[in-house]
Amino acid sequence: MIILKIIITLFLLFAILTLIKQFKKSQIALAGFLFWLIVWITVGIVFWQPELTTRLANQFGIGRGSDFIIYISIIVIFYQLFRIYAHIEKIETNITKIIRKIAIDNAQDNRKLDKNN
């Protein structure tokens, strides 16, 4: 178990360092930075102090800490899915605007064809 904990901790340190680098280079917004920072720190706490999650779970009437984590994870995943869907919709709308502008700017008007020929 201790080996797994060390591997996970190294991974978390790597993830947090990468996150800080991204934030410094302005590749990620403050809200995104804080969100992921909290996620990784929480994962670390859960790995080193698993009994904490059981105590927290009991507060919500859930018996096991691992169950509590699964419930929370599902909520977070669904929320993220929804955000991704919203983001894709926004991109789709913008693509349509671009395609529409190209179509109108390059309109092929053949209404006078007969008169010119």
Binding site: I95, T96, N110
Partner: peptide, 30 residues
């Protein structure tokens, strides 16, 4: 369509029916 005395607007990629109607509306209004 080019063979007829109409206006042809080309979506370079498929955006579906609602998008096409709005493109037509925008052109007509302009």
């Amino acid at each position: 369509v080019s063979q007829y005395t109409v206006v042809l607007l080309k979506h370079i990629i498929n955006r579906d029916q609602g998008a096409s109607l709005q493109t037509g509306n925008d052109y007509a209004l302009n």
